[in-house]
Amino acid sequence: MSGEYLAFLALALVAITGGVLMLNLTKVVHMVIALVFTFISIAGLYVLLSAEFVAVVQVLIYSGAVTIMMLFGIMLTRHQEEEGEKTTTGGFWRKALTAIAVFAFGIAVYLGVYRLDFGEEGARLHENNTEQIGMALYSHYTIPFEIASVILLVALVGAIILAKKDDEGAPKS
């Protein structure tokens, strides 16, 4: 049992625990916090997979930006939540059916992947990982990179327009 394997087991356990907690907790804020564990352990997994840069980005974007944004969203939309309010939708049958379908889907995919092994290993990925990414991104993937920046810009503008209070014109509901 190598150290890498132990590390993987621990990270995977934390990630899945975070997901399961997200499903089972009752308070919205707690759910988001639970997911932060998952996101961070996924970052750890990236390190195991020789993707240090992606791991850092993961921590920055997900654990930092997205989570904080979601918490802000929750706070801004907070209303008087009563104790014991339902956190899920649909009746028992619908949830059961969805669970069964998800489970069946998981089994089917599991059957497809659990023996998958190509036998190769990108052994050089961790050497100057950031440099490799930078080289690829600014040479081979320039155009997608630019397009991604355009998407971010559009998202920025769109988000501002959507979230802006439209007092003028439309009557207040």
């Binding site: 939708t89 649909g90 619908r94 379908a101 069946a104 889907f105 089917a108 995919v109």
Partner: peptide, 23 residues
């Protein structure tokens, strides 16, 4: 009218197809 319901139905159908395909 609930998006989740539509999503659930769609996904159940997809899962059914995937399972049939897998087996």
């Amino acid at each position: 009218g609930q998006v989740q319901m539509y999503g659930a139905v769609t996904f159940v159908g997809l899962a059914l197809l995937v399972v049939i395909l897998a087996f």
